[in-house]
Design a binder for these strands. Structure first.
Length: 423
RNA sequence: GGAGGGGUGGCAGAGAGGUCUAACGCACCGCACUUGAAAUGCGGCGUGGGGAAACCCACCGUGAGUUCGAAUCUCACCCCCUCCGCCA
């Protein structure tokens, strides 16, 4: 949600921003409606003022005079009522338009329509060279009895999976790996967040109403979260924070559920794109300054990179183009790790900042040094999502005999240096 | 699943159709006293909108309704809490 005042005063910037994001929104219609709203509000205010004055007079008046004033007020009441009805209709349209206005992307965001227009800004690590025919993760996990897709779909349906043996061990090792890295940092608050969440935090974070078809909904009208960003951002909903407590950084864990509506043809094999997974997410609330947001954004991205570097997985960072940004995002980096079978980098992390777009909807404010209430800025980035990262680990670390080396950083947690079984 | 009790400013908590322009307290800010602090005293202090300002309007969980007038009465919904039952 943007501030209507900001939209009014920066119409051209908002229109250009929407265009850059390839989002259709009629700002002129919104502003015309807003003019109507303001005019009508003024006349309602005026009527109310008369009514309030009369109310005091009635209380003090004698019986006969009382009746006269009441009679006069009855007429006023009729006009007021019809004005209020018009106002309600205007506000309904006004709100519907307001939630479709996208946040303005940063200057540094490149133009473009979709992910193919994202620009690489950094590359790290050596791509693996194999002196044998490398396998893809689907086959590697199956051959090493680390995953079972057939029974997965028998039990859980399309995109269902079981992880077993070293597949399960690898996830548990990664759990401990990532937990330890973040537990050693006193600036991050460890958090286990709910996945079954009421609709308000989804509204607040921008997943509703736009992306409802990608969410699972319960018979109680709650939704399952696709990311801990939703409950973690909801944590301080409708609260006022102290400036001295900012920034607040969360290291949040939750199971994640995604319907993957609209991606039926994509990544249908294996565990790259699945309905159910777990994820550690970094979420930051900071004071309302662009510089602060940028600083934390770079830091969140670097935190994720440090994990990949320790795992020695070759990756690159792309800056997402305008057309690949969500409604509320100002700027986003995706971190993508090399997937040998596809000879391309595939996304493992997504790092973005929102300025006050989310906190406005969630009503999370803080009192600044002058006692003024301001909306916090918010950011988030993946820390580690599983089992997706397994796809890149097993493909990059595969050996000629079909087994998989354990990344050095995980050997302590796995208690061995090779996974799987020799054929 | 059953029964009951509640949602009022940052917190706590009165208020039960018309000086509610929402009490008292805590917290916070300013001043005085003090070497400094604590304590004490005096004053200020909700949020949002409109306006150059004076000032005006709205907001007591949400939405409808009754009324000249609603925090207060009526209805619906949402949320929280307590007890019983079930349960990892």
């Amino acid at each position: 949600m943007l501030d209507i005042k900001f939209i009014r005063e920066n119409k051209d910037i908002v229109i250009a921003g929407a265009k850059k994001k390839h989002i259709n929104v009629d700002i002129d219609a919104l502003l015309a409606l807003d003019d109507k709203r303001r005019t009508l509000q003024a006349s309602i205010d005026e009527a109310r003022a008369k009514q309030n004055a009369a109310s005091i007079a009635i209380a003090a008046a004698e019986n006969s005079e009382k009746r006269i004033i009441i009679g006069r007020m009855q007429t006023l009441k009729e006009t007021l009522k019809s004005d209020e009805e018009s106002m309600q209709e205007i506000m309904k349209q006004w709100r519907a338009l307001m939630v479709t206005v996208p946040n303005v992307p940063d200057m540094s965001v490149p133009d473009g329509e979709s992910e193919v227009d994202n620009k690489e800004v950094k590359k790290w690590g050596e791509l693996p060279k194999f002196d044998f025919e490398p396998k893809d993760h689907v086959e590697l996990l199956l051959a090493n009895d680390m995953a079972d897709y057939e029974r997965g779909s028998k039990v859980a349906g399309f995109r269902g999976y079981f992880l077993k043996n070293d597949g399960a061990r690898l996830v548990w090792a990664l759990n401990r790996f990532v937990e330890e890295r973040f537990m050693n940092r006193s600036d991050f608050i460890p958090m286990i967040a709910p996945s079954l969440v009421r609709k308000e935090p989804f509204m607040g974070t921008g997943y509703l109403p736009q992306s409802e078809e990608d969410l699972y909904k319960t018979q109680d009208s709650d939704y399952l979260t696709g990311t801990a960003e939703v409950p973690t951002m909801g944590y301080y909903m409708d609260e006022i924070l102290e400036e001295k407590d900012l920034p607040i950084k969360f290291f949040a864990f939750s199971p994640c559920f995604r319907r993957e509506a609209g991606s039926y043809g994509k990544d249908t094999k294996g565990i790259f794109r699945i309905h159910e997974f777990v994820k550690y997410e970094q979420v930051v609330l900071c004071e309302a300054s662009h510089e602060e947001s940028v600083k934390h954004h770079e830091e969140l991205t670097a935190n994720a990179e440090a994990l990949l570097q320790e795992l020695k997985l070759p990756y690159h960072v792309v800056i997402n183009c305008g057309g690949d940004l969500g409604l509320g995002q100002v700027k986003k980096y995706d971190i993508e790790v090399w997937l040998p079978s596809e000879k391309q980098y595939r996304e493992t992390h997504s790092s973005s900042y929102f300025h006050d777009f989310q906190s406005r909807r969630l009503n999370i404010r803080y009192r600044d040094e002058n006692g003024v209430l301001r909306y916090v800025h918010s950011l988030n980035n993946t820390a580690l999502a599983m089992p997706r990262i397994l796809t890149q680990i097993v493909e990059n670390y595969q050996r000629a005999d079909g087994t998989v080396s354990v990344p050095e950083a995980l050997q302590g947690y796995m208690g061995k240096d090779v996974m799987g079984k020799v054929q």
